[in-house]
């Protein structure tokens, strides 16, 4: 899946400017950006639902064209607000989708059962018209995965859901990774951190960074978050004489320990001062900070 120098204008307003993206196979690719940054527009371009102003997109070797595009055979799409026919049952809707994708009759039943199982709608007997947002979102994933796409495009799959619904969707996406490449957009950074391998960020129509999540997290500044059995302010007073930058944030102590030697020294000092550590973790909120920096 490749996006080359894509530009999209609505009238004179440039929504996407010179976008380049390369999505490797069998990864979960998080596409982060604020509301209105152009995420949905790019996705619609990838599906041939919007014509490009310049550049090209190719999926699995097929060039995406506006209108009807062959590349859609390899794609499953979950829109931000999926709309279904309210008079169908989930199974009937999936059967319609199966007919449309020309799935052989023999395969249909088993595949639909499999997907209803995956998204947890097997026992749902009601009409789609009565579905909650979360159920619609899950049915949306089922239809998107129906024809075993090489690329699954999800537009803000979690943003309108409650925490339980979000967790469900994220775990379904993670499971889907074994079959397909997942490309999903979100403005909730923590969702991206939870399941992504790769992250790209779109801001004002351009990609401002794009990397593997691990790389991004490794670049982190070496901050650790400590909590102690005593209040953090007291602990900081006791550790005054150490040459590390420290600050207190919500009863946790943030210490910058750039290398292993520094970490050892800090631990020794803790033992010497008889400070009992309740918890300790590396500062991993980096992506969120990065995003905030950009947006701020």
């Amino acid at each position: 899946m490749q996006i080359n120098n894509v530009t999209k204008q609505f009238g004179t307003h440039e929504v996407l400017r010179d976008i380049n993206l390369n999505i490797p196979e069998h990864t979960v690719f998080g596409f982060v950006g604020a509301n209105g940054s152009g995420k949905t527009t790019l996705m619609k371009c990838m599906l041939g639902l919007l014509p490009l102003t310049a550049g090209s997109i190719s999926i699995a070797g097929e060039c995406v064209t506006f209108g009807e595009t062959r590349s859609n055979d390899y794609v499953g799409y979950l829109p931000d607000v999926p709309e279904f026919y309210p008079f169908f049952h989930a199974r009937q809707y999936l059967e319609l989708c199966a007919v449309i994708t020309n799935m052989p009759k023999s395969e249909r039943m088993t595949r639909i059962d499999e997907l209803l199982e995956l998204v947890g709608l097997v026992d749902t007997k009601s009409l789609i018209g009565t579905f909650s947002r979360g159920m619609k979102q899950r049915l949306g994933i089922a239809q998107a995965l129906l024809n075993r796409p090489k690329l699954l495009i999800c537009d803000e799959p979690t943003s309108a859901l409650d925490p339980a619904g979000r967790a469900q969707i994220l775990s379904i996406l993670q499971k889907a990774k074994t079959e397909t490449t997942v490309f999903f957009s979100t403005h909730i950074v923590s969702d991206a951190v939870q399941i992504c391998d790769h992250v790209a960020m779109l801001h004002e129509g351009t990609i401002i960074f794009q990397d593997e999540l691990i790389n991004l997290q490794q670049q982190f500044s070496g901050q650790f978050i400590y909590t102690f059995t005593i209040p953090a302010t007291e602990a900081m007073e006791q550790l005054q004489n150490l040459p590390f930058t420290m600050r207190v944030d919500a009863n946790t102590l943030l210490v910058t320990l750039p290398d292993d030697a520094a970490r050892l020294t800090f631990m020794k000092e803790l033992t010497r001062q008889k400070l009992i550590v309740q918890s300790m973790q590396p500062q991993t909120k980096l992506l969120e900070q990065l995003v905030l920096e950009v947006l701020g």
Partner: peptide
């Protein structure tokens, strides 16, 4: 208006 065709069109439904 409802956008019910979007999914089906991306599934390859001919216009």
């Amino acid at each position: 208006e409802k956008g019910t065709l979007v999914i089906l069109l991306t599934k390859g439904l001919r216009r």
